[in-house]
């Protein structure tokens, strides 16, 4: 065995750490570059009118109001469907589920749901909500599809937030004769709220950015007005970005970047909101 000199060992350490640092800087720089570039290019066009006007000339002029509103509807729809189910299922898995086969299967299903490609959710939504349940290419069908996709996240975050609540609270509550559900409702859930909210906000952020499922389930290319009922078609920001970027010839560059900026701003602001909720809760707990 050859012994290496301390010098060569130190040089190899220096080199190696430099490589690791370079990789880290590269990832950070590319991320920041993308975000900053979009902000800078998009800022040239995004103004009040751009946000509040309907598109004209196949999206080449006017604003993106219907797309922005449609995306908010989708986020809301996803939240309303996926959050309650996520919390209930999370409660079952954290508080009630015995260690048996069924529980294992449920947890396995959740892991796999999280990995199903978004386009496959689109096919599922098309098959079940659009065609079988006959909701048509509608806001409702799209919300349900996105909610199914969000389910894995809302269940997982709720479950983890509930499990993190110390067991001695449960014991203390049961020992004064509270029922299991009372204990959950009045003691455990309030403690788990920040974690659950974080998950819900992240799920909304995802729903805002998803494109493939709503492309399959039928987002509208262009709409002058807003959807009047859940059974109406809708525009959405990510689909709008896709169409203006790919499908409409002669689209002004600025408009494309503007749409990208608005979409990015919506998605990332919800992402950051989730982080803030998480950090504040952690600080409160001390």
């Amino acid at each position: 065995m050859r012994t290496r000199s301390n010098l060569s060992r130190r040089i190899s350490q220096k080199t190696a750490f430099a490589v690791l640092l370079t990789a880290t800087i590269a990832v950070t720089a590319v991320s920041l570059f993308i975000i900053i570039h979009i902000v800078v290019r998009g800022a040239a066009i995004v103004d009040w009118d751009f946000l509040t006007q309907a598109p004209t000339q196949a999206g080449k002029a006017g604003g993106i109001f219907p797309a922005l509103v449609g995306t908010f509807y989708l986020m809301l729809g996803t939240l309303v469907i996926a959050l309650p189910i996520g919390v209930l299922a999370g409660i079952y898995l954290s508080e009630y589920a015995p260690k048996n086969r069924l529980t294992k299967v449920i947890n396995l299903a959740i892991v796999n749901l999280a990995g199903v490609p978004s386009i496959v959710y689109g096919l599922f939504g098309l098959g079940v909500f659009v065609l079988m349940l006959n909701f048509g290419m509608s806001l409702l069908a799209a919300s349900l599809t996105l909610a199914c996709q969000a389910l894995a996240m809302t269940i997982t975050t709720s479950r983890e937030a509930l499990i993190a609540v110390p067991a001695e609270y449960r014991a203390g509550s049961l020992a004064v004769g509270a029922t299991r559900w009372q204990t959950i409702r009045h003691l455990i859930l309030p403690q788990a709220r920040p974690g659950i909210v974080t998950g819900a906000v992240l799920a909304m952020s995802r729903a805002a950015g998803e494109t493939a499922p709503i492309l399959v389930v039928g987002a509208a290319f262009l709409m002058r007005g807003l959807p009047q009922s859940p059974f109406d078609r809708f525009m959405a920001l990510p689909y709008h970005l896709y169409t203006v970027a790919v499908h409409i010839p002669g689209m002004p560059e600025d408009t494309k970047w503007g749409v990208a900026l608005v979409l990015l701003a919506v998605v990332l602001s919800f992402n950051i909101l989730a982080t803030v909720v998480r950090l504040r809760a952690r600080k409160q707990r001390g």
Partner: peptide, 21 residues
């Protein structure tokens, strides 16, 4: 947090960047 931001960028925006830049 920066890497988390990268994770948050929607795929359509990543595609858009790829297309234009």
């Amino acid at each position: 947090p920066v890497i988390e931001l990268l994770a948050g960028i929607p795929s359509v925006v990543i595609g858009f960047i790829g297309l234009l830049l």
